[in-house]
């Protein structure tokens, strides 16, 4: 199953590695990724558009991504923001 996520993060050099490591380790394959750094709507961070596939429920990934210290928001495309772990399992 394919899912598209938007992830906004703090501007830390290691945050992309963290996002990709969690994505791989939790069983999701990256289909596409687009990254913008310190753009107008996010002057101090990264905006990541991520499309992944997996047999696993997407909550298994979003619940882990929102735990990353430098991740500020995770949004499932066309769904609600999952900014907090509580929202992520809703």
């Amino acid at each position: 199953m394919q899912h598209s996520l938007t992830i906004t993060t703090r501007s830390q050099a290691d945050v992309l590695e963290r996002v990709l490591r969690v994505t791989r380790h939790r069983g999701f394959l990256v289909q596409s990724m687009h990254i913008e750094h310190e753009v107008q709507h996010l002057p101090a961070g990264y905006a990541i558009e991520l499309t992944v596939t997996s047999e696993r429920p997407i909550a298994h990934l979003t619940n882990q991504l929102v735990k990353l210290f430098d991740v500020e928001q995770v949004t499932l495309k066309q769904l609600q923001a999952v900014a907090s772990p509580e929202a992520a399992i809703a």
């Binding site: 735990k67 509580e86 399992i89």
Partner: peptide, 17 residues
Amino acid sequence: ADASEFGKRREPDVALD
């Protein structure tokens, strides 16, 4: 205390995080 544990291995009927 860690909501990512809910549904990771077994779906809860009620989750209290």
